[in-house]
């Protein structure tokens, strides 16, 4: 996933983003990461909790209410 353009997930609900991430992470080889754009609410409610499930989660603000999130396995 490293070489792909980050996808824009800002319009997904928190629940559907959680589902999308679980699907993507279930197919992700160890050592790789997924990168995508998310809103502040998505970062707080959906992305950050993945750090408690053994994933490395980081994010960087790109614009007002737009964050580039990386979740690694």
């Amino acid at each position: 996933m490293d070489n792909h353009e980050p996808k824009d997930f800002t319009e997904l609900t928190c629940t559907n983003l959680m589902i999308k991430l679980k699907i993507l992470l279930s197919k992700l080889p160890t050592g790789n990461q997924v990168a995508f754009f998310a809103t502040r609410e998505q970062v707080d409610n959906t992305c950050a909790p993945f750090s408690g499930q053994g994933y490395q989660v980081s994010w960087k603000q790109e614009a007002e209410n737009r964050y580039l999130v990386r979740i690694g396995k």
């Binding site: 559907n16 589902i19 999308k20 679980k22 699907i23 279930s26």
Partner: peptide, 11 residues
């Protein structure tokens, strides 16, 4: 589109 079966499997 969401793959409905994948939605079920991961939830």
């Amino acid at each position: 589109i969401f793959n409905i079966q994948e939605m079920i499997a991961v939830t």
